[in-house]
Design a protein around this nucleic acid. Structure first.
Lengths: 216, 216
DNA sequence: CCGGGTCTGCACGCTGGCGTACACCGGCAT
DNA sequence: ATGCCGGTGTACGCCAGCGTGCAGACCCGG
C-alpha cells in the first residue's frame, strides 16, 4: 500500500469532497486540518467532525457508501498523503490489522460526531469554542492556529460576532492570545477547564481506540 | 448465524447498554425503537441516533471499540432479535455480504448522527419534532406512536413544554393528533413539508445505502 | 507614505427557547 | 364514587444568540 501513497499539498479552503460526489481518494493529513461539514440549503453550515494527523478523510470509501452528504474542506493548510480509493478498498478487504485500525478510527469519528450533536444542543458558544480549539490543537502539533474568527464561526455554525466575543473573554482570562487570524493557546489546562465535558469525552475515546495516536 | 438469533422482548425504558459498559449482544429490532443517547453530567440528555427495524444496535462490537460513551434505551416497546457479540464478530470477520451490509448500515447511521448535529445547531424545536416523528415512523410500521411528550423532550434534549407547544401547532394544522401518550400521524406529506431538510437527507441516505431496507 | 482590503470590536433590537410554577383533565385503582 | 397521578396546557420573566450595521485597527502593496 505504501508505495501508492502520494504526498500532496493541502491549501487553505481546498474542497476535497463535495456533498454527494463520489470520492476518488482518501487522505491522511500530516500537518493540516480538514473539516467535514454540512452546508444547508440556505447556505448556513455546521461542522460534523474535524480530521487531522490522527485520522483520515474518506471513510465512506471502505464503508461501502462511496460518498456522503457532507463536504470535506481544508481548514488549516499543510500536506496529506493521498491514496486512490481502489487501493484503500483493496487493503481493507484483506481483513488485517489495517482494516481493524480503520474501523477503530471510524468509531472514534462516530464519537466525535455524536458529541458534536450533544454540544450543539446544550452548550454555549464559548464552551464550543474551547472544545473546538482543543480538538484542533490535538490534530496539529502546535499551540498555534492560523484561522480567522470568521472561519471558526462557519465551522461552529454561529455568527462571527459570537466567536469574537467568546475569544475576547478567553483572552482576558489569559488562556489564549490572538490577532488577525493567528491564535496562540497560552494556558491549555485553563482552556480545558473552560470547555464542556464534550472535549474530554472525545479525547478519551480517541486515546482509548487509537493508543499512541492523535496526541503523540 | 441465524440459529443463534434469539427473539427477546424489549420493554419500554429498558437500557440495553450503559455508557462505557462493554456490549454483550447486538440487537436487531423487529417492531421496537431504540434510542442512542448521551446523558450529560448534569443529567440533561440528547439523542444521537434512533434505531428501528431497519438497523441494529451495537455496531461498536464489530467496529472494534467494544463500547461507546452513549446509552441505548428502548423508546417504544416491542421485540428484537439478539445475537451474542462473539457471533456477530465472527460473522463480520468472514468479509462476506453480511460484513458489507453492516458497514453500509453503519455509514447510514453516521449520516443520521451528522444530521442530528446539524439539526441541533440550526433548526427550531418544531422542525426537529417533525424530523423525529418521521424518522420514528419509518422505523416502525405504523402511523401511530406510543410515546409521551416528556419522553420526546428527553430525546430531543429540549423542555417538555417546547414539545407540547410544537405538537399543539401540528395538531392545529391537522397533521397529527395526540392524547395522553399516543400520537397518530394524519397527514404524512404535510408533516414532511413542515420538517427541515435534515429528515430528507437522512431518508435519502438510508434508501441509497440500504435499498429495500428501512421503508419497506 | 498612503490606500484598500481584511480582520476584529461594538451596539441595538428581536426572538426562540429556558426555568419555573401551577392549573386542568382523564383514566385507573382502591 | 372518589382520589390520585401521569400527561398536557399556559403563563411569565429571562437571556443567549441572531441579524444588521458600522467603526476602528492592522497589514500589505503600490
Amino acid at each position: 500500500m505504501e508505495p501508492r501513497l502520494e504526498l500532496t499539498p493541502m491549501p487553505l479552503g481546498h474542497v476535497l469532497y463535495e456533498s454527494g460526489m463520489p470520492l476518488q481518494h482518501v487522505y491522511f493529513p500530516t500537518n493540516c486540518i480538514v473539516s467535514l461539514l454540512y452546508v444547508m440549503e440556505d447556505g448556513h453550515s455546521a461542522e460534523i467532525a474535524i480530521v487531522g494527523k490522527e485520522g483520515m478523510v474518506g471513510v465512506a470509501l471502505f464503508m461501502g457508501g462511496e460518498t456522503t452528504p457532507s463536504r470535506a474542506i481544508v481548514q488549516s493548510a499543510g500536506h496529506a498523503y493521498r491514496l486512490p480509493g481502489k487501493a484503500i478498498k483493496e487493503e481493507f478487504s484483506h481483513a488485517g490489522p489495517v482494516q481493524r485500525l480503520m474501523l477503530r478510527y471510524t468509531q472514534a469519528l462516530i464519537t466525535q460526531m455524536a458529541q458534536t450533536a450533544v454540544c450543539n444542543r446544550h452548550h454555549s458558544v464559548e464552551q464550543q469554542l474551547c472544545r473546538w480549539l482543543l480538538l484542533s490543537l490535538d490534530r496539529l502539533d502546535s499551540t498555534e492556529l492560523v484561522m480567522t474568527q470568521e472561519l471558526i464561526a462557519n465551522m461552529l455554525g454561529v455568527r462571527r460576532e459570537g466567536v469574537t466575543e467568546s475569544a475576547g473573554k478567553l483572552q482576558k482570562l489569559g488562556l489564549i492570545s490572538y490577532s488577525r487570524g493567528r491564535i496562540v493557546v497560552l494556558d491549555r489546562p485553563g482552556l480545558e477547564g473552560q470547555a464542556c465535558e464534550c472535549y474530554a469525552v472525545v479525547k478519551r475515546e480517541f486515546d482509548r481506540l487509537l493508543p499512541g495516536g492523535p496526541a503523540r
